[in-house]
């Protein structure tokens, strides 16, 4: 019988995102769990991946976990400390941009993978105002692959966004191309319940993997829009090796894993 190592929801999310990162990728990272996923990938499956921050630091040593993309911890032993105009040019430029995979968070996502990081309610007079785009809109406009990290809740997986900050597949089909965007944007969604991807033709989100102990039906219950679950399979749980590296080498003080 298969034995599954005990793990927390944060740990399986981190490992699932890390598995999306390929050797040689340039990983556009935020802070928190997204940075941990980038570090896990580097230590487990993609040793030649490079962590990159919108503030302009590339391949920083990260002896300590940074808490912000402007944390002085990302400036130590970087290949280069540059500036915003350079970092976004690296992503807009296809030569380097095509190697970039981004990890983004959001308050809301719709069935086409468009993200809202701006507000809940009316834009001009919102119930809740969030930080805004930052570099999220830029990277989702430029690069071929973005991972959205989300808690799987109905109020976050919505039929209609309160504000479209960062582009996924816009309205599906060829709407990204029609708008003038390159192919790309949000291409995979990793939550505490499963992994979602987007249909090549329709651009709609479908369930690819559900975690051990979670059913596809439970994921649908926590999603406001309808989603194809017919091809979903159970995710391979984190292995002992993956968990060991994540815990011992990436976040030994459990600053992010909790």
């Amino acid at each position: 019988m298969e034995t599954i190592q005990p793990y927390t929801p944060k740990e399986i999310m981190t490992i699932m995102a890390a598995r999306e990162i390929k050797n040689g990728d340039i990983v556009f990272s935020g802070t928190g769990i997204s940075m941990l996923a980038a570090m896990a990938a580097k230590n487990i499956n993609a040793p030649e991946s490079v962590i990159f921050f919108e503030t302009g630091a590339i391949d920083s040593l990260l002896e300590e976990l940074p808490f912000a993309v402007a944390d002085p911890r990302i400036m130590y032993w970087a290949a280069s400390n540059s500036r915003l105009t350079d970092s976004f040019a690296t992503m807009q430029n296809k030569i380097t941009g095509d190697k970039v995979i981004a990890i983004l968070g959001a308050a809301q996502i719709d069935k086409y993978g468009n993200l809202n990081t701006t507000c809940i309610g009316d834009y001009f007079s919102p119930e809740i105002r969030f930080s805004g785009s930052g570099g999220g809109c830029d990277v989702a406009s430029f690069v071929p692959r973005c991972i959205a990290f989300m808690q799987h809740e109905k109020r976050k997986f919505v039929e209609k966004l309160d504000y479209l900050t960062s582009p996924g597949q816009l309205e599906g089909k060829n709407s990204r191309k029609k708008a003038g965007l390159r192919p790309g944007g949000v291409s995979v969604v990793v939550t505490n319940m499963g992994v979602m991807r987007f249909d090549k033709d329709t651009g709609k989100m479908y369930l690819d993997k559900f975690y051990p102990g979670i059913t596809p039906e439970k994921i649908l219950e926590n999603t406001e829009f309808n989603m194809d679950i017919s091809t979903a399979t159970r995710a391979d749980p984190p292995t002992q090796t993956e968990l060991k590296i994540l815990r011992k080498d990436c976040d030994p003080q459990r600053l992010i894993l909790g």
Partner: peptide, 15 residues
């Protein structure tokens, strides 16, 4: 010029 923001509400919502 930039290629950022096409199709988003950053273009359409004016403060």
């Amino acid at each position: 010029p930039t290629l950022s923001g096409l199709g988003t509400e950053i273009l359409t919502k004016w403060g």
